[in-house]
Design a protein around this nucleic acid. Structure first.
Length: 420
RNA sequence: GCGGGCGUAGCUCAGUUGGUUAGAGCGCUAGGUUGUGGUCCUUGAGGUCGUGGGUUCGAGACCCAUCGUUCGCCCCA
């Protein structure tokens, strides 16, 4: 670029920076997540952002929008098709197989990181967004669903929004139940297809179950009299769901059964659920997941059960308060223009006892003090080389304005709680 | 991908029916204050009015396109 041209300093559409308190907010949610999953015995499983395209084409199902039009695809220099991951589960399953973890069941894996979907950006919906999630492999019992749901509840509680959110659960049944219901739905709706919304007419061919999820009034009309998926459940699928619900009740978890909850990704079976936060508008689903017993097999592995969920950190950020900013406890200010003899040593002495410290050498003293007050820094230490200051520093308590002349060692002692 | 709103200084916003050198508050700069802040006063800097076209004697205001953002749909976390 030629001189005088200005670089376009905008981030890529739908992607953003997390600066200062926003960065701290994101990190604090991550900290809560890792703390909670550790309590449940999950181990971290961090996978690459790029996967071979087949990982997602195979797992997510071609009918889903995520696959058909939202993936960031690219060819690497060798000509291999790669995809920036649009979700976490497929990569985790790939990692499970790559690392032969399926030989040591059960596996409890947790992940966190950026995901990429080429969608129209909106509040709570970005093209690069961040998810945390858990996957539990090798346990087909309802107890695994209950435990995963309990973890989701603990996580949202620790983050502080469980009370403002509502857990909705449903069952899709086993593949047989689901296929039978799907056909029934098609049979019922095809004769009245012309009354459906344009979106649902399309869904009738791609993913009929999603019509149940429609917000369109005409669609609601058309669905009157259509049997429920519940009517198609096999006895064992029915029993699985009943036991999940019983487990949640026993734990005192609030939930409601919503027969219209249908996940968009094709791999889900049996239990499916969403935590919806009020007051986030159209992007209110803050955490969602379910059971995906066929997925590992679909991807070329053994027939392993799986259940898990993912949560969107950006949406959690909208629903929670950022942590209070934490300025350094003490700032060391050299008074002399000469090299700041001792300033770094003193700052490091504070750090050695766990007190955060910075050295500010630049600018007039007035400017530095003003900035210190602005940022809420509680303590300032002045160091200088004037003869009368030999061997001493001056510690100022910003809240009171009081200032004490001390030896460097005394200053450290005072801030660790020692007496003056 | 579809429909609507918005886009003026670092931030929050004014800008009269299109009419001279585009304003305020906060922030920033320098000072009033004898090496040191949070109040007050003064000083200075900072704007291709998102971008590109068009209409007009004249556009920050009107029209078109485009980019970004926002709300709804779609989708999903």
């Amino acid at each position: 670029m030629t001189e005088g041209d200005r670089l376009d300093v905008q981030p890529v559409r739908g992607m953003r920076d997390y600066v200062g308190v926003e960065g701290a907010h994101l990190l604090s949610l991550l900290a809560v997540f890792w703390e909670q999953v550790a309590l449940f015995g999950y181990t971290p499983c961090l996978t690459p952002l790029l996967e071979e395209a087949g990982v997602f084409f195979r797992s997510l199902g071609e009918s889903s929008d995520v696959i058909s039009k939202e993936m960031y695809t690219l060819l690497d220099r060798g000509g291999d098709p790669l995809v920036l991951r649009p979700e976490g589960t497929a990569g985790i399953v790939r990692a499970l197989l790559s690392n032969r973890l399926h030989q040591d069941m059960p596996a409890h894996l947790a992940y966190a990181g950026p995901m990429f979907r080429y969608e129209r950006p909106q509040k709570g919906r970005l093209r690069q967004f961040h998810q945390v999630g858990v996957e539990h492999f090798g346990d087909a019992s309802p107890e695994a669903d209950v435990e995963s749901l309990l973890l989701s509840w603990r996580f949202l509680t620790a983050v502080g929004i469980a009370g403002d959110s509502c857990l909705q659960i449903n069952t899709l049944g086993d593949p047989e139940s689901r296929a039978a219901f799907r056909q029934c739905l098609i049979d019922h709706l095809t004769p009245v297809a012309h009354t459906l919304s344009a979106d649902s007419q399309r869904r009738l061919h791609t993913n009929p179950l999603r019509i149940l999820d429609s917000k369109d009034l005409a669609d609601h009309q058309a669905l009157i009299g259509v049997p429920s998926l519940q009517d198609f459940l096999t006895p064992s699928a029915r029993d699985h769901f009943d036991r999940v619900c019983a487990g949640l009740k026993a734990l005192g978890m609030p939930f409601e059964i919503n027969p219209r909850i249908v996940r968009g990704l094709d791999y889900y079976v049996h239990t499916t659920f969403e935590w919806v936060h009020g007051g986030l508008g159209a992007q209110g689903t803050v955490l969602a997941g379910g059971r995906y017993d066929g997925l590992v097999r679909t991807m070329g592995g053994p027939d392993l059960a799986g259940v898990g969920w993912a949560a969107g950190l950006e949406r959690l950020m909208l629903a929670t308060f950022p942590p209070a900013p934490s300025p350094p406890c003490v700032v060391v200010m050299p008074e002399d223009e000469a090299p700041p003899f001792g300033a770094h040593q003193l700052a490091d002495a504070f750090r050695h006892v766990g007190i955060s410290a910075m050295v500010w050498a630049e600018g007039s003293m007035k400017k530095r003090m003003k900035k210190a007050a602005q940022r809420g820094i509680p303590h300032v230490v002045f160091v200088g080389q004037a003869p009368e200051h030999t061997g001493t520093v001056r510690l100022k308590i910003m809240a009171t304005g009081q200032q004490y002349t001390l030896s460097p060692a005394q200053a450290v002692t005072v801030l660790t709680g020692g007496a003056l």
